[in-house]
Nucleic acid binder design. Structure first.
Lengths: 117, 117
DNA sequence: CTATCATTCAACTATTTTGTTGACTGATCC
DNA sequence: GGATCAGTCAACAAAATAGTTGAATGATAG
């Protein structure tokens, strides 16, 4: 988990993952957009590999990388737990509006309707 | 984005977020479960704060922390992009089974049924 | 045998991160 | 005034990270 989030915490590596989402890439192709030495890019790739986000196939004399998205599911779930909190504000607003409606309705002596979800 | 994923890349900080999900906590309460000095825990809290995941309210002589989940939505979306890939294997299996069905069906000269979701 | 290609490895440096300890702050209580 | 409390700040050390350069690898092509 640490390794996955750490891998994602760098723009260079996120860009590499994006590129891999479009299809397999050699180390050279992954490195190309980044203003750094090939050796440095190679290290970034190794970080992604250690996090299990990349599978490497040594083909001919080139190393071909593939996206391995499966481990991202746990990270996604970890964050998903907090979804209830970033949607809470909207819920609260909604609830307030609904209460206001209910108030108006009851003032008109009409029983308020429940509308949960 | 870097800051958010970096904040999440440490178990200590993820635990603090979990604790905050249960309600507001003082710095001391957040630090308590962790085998480190209060100053060290305070630094972790500062990392979370810098990532915008915590709001601090200075109340009385204690600092009370609140979860600020909103920035997590972007991180969640970032990862969600890859959902198509970690579900792909199942899709492929499904498709293969469906094609096999279709094959059998056409051999029986019966039009195949669609059953999308 | 030598050159080339795609990439890794090793050694090094600079920066950041994570932890420690001890001193400081700012308010209240006696 | 002096003690206490919750926390921060500063200075330090150890480890990890991110980058560099130059040499090594391992297979094929000439």
């Amino acid at each position: 988990m640490d390794a996955i989030f750490h891998a994602l915490s760098d723009e260079t590596r996120r860009r590499m993952l994006r590129d891999l989402a479009a299809g397999e890439r050699t180390v050279g192709e992954l490195a190309e957009p980044h203003p750094m030495s090939l050796a440095a890019a190679s290290k970034h790739i190794k970080v992604l590999e250690k996090a299990g986000l990349i599978r490497r196939e040594i083909r001919w004399r080139t190393h071909v990388c593939h996206l391995e998205a499966a481990p991202l599911e746990r990270a996604h779930d970890e964050i998903a737990f907090y979804e209830q909190f970033w949607t809470r504000k909207l819920d609260t607003l909604e609830r307030l509006l609904r209460e206001e409606d209910a108030q108006n309705a009851s003032e008109l002596s009409d029983p308020p309707k429940r509308e949960d979800e």
